[in-house]
Amino acid sequence: MDISHRIVLHFPRRLVDQPIVCSLVLDYGLRFNILKAQVTPEEEGLMVMELWGEEESYQKGVDYLARIGLKIQPLSHDIRRDEEKCTHCGACVVLCPSGALVVDPETRRIDFHHEKCIACELCVKACPPRAMEVCF
């Protein structure tokens, strides 16, 4: 059975130049979607990604990450949209850095693609009807 999780990876300085994500794909057959990444040479790195694949492979992949010295955390909080509150204005769209909040070009409805959300919270306070909520 396939599973999918959104996780935060902390790279120690010694590992930032290693092709680690590549190993997840080649050695463990996992798929990934990078939501946010800040990995610069000679510094500690941070990456938020959605990772999915077979449950067993997933577990093996995550074990591999831990073994080589990455710190792994689940994405600690999540952003939800209260559908009843949303007025579909679009104030959030220009603030969303990951393309999770977009205007449907046909209907001009505001769509929230939860899987693209990096939980940066920029939309939360900018939302006039306060429809975007942080869940812990």
Partner: peptide
């Protein structure tokens, strides 16, 4: 369309009023 041109700059747009509603 999601962006306008102001001088040399391409500026992303947002609506505060809902066309959909």
């Amino acid at each position: 369309s999601g962006k306008i041109q102001v001088g040399e700059v391409e500026v992303p747009t947002a609506s505060l009023s809902s066309y959909f509603k």
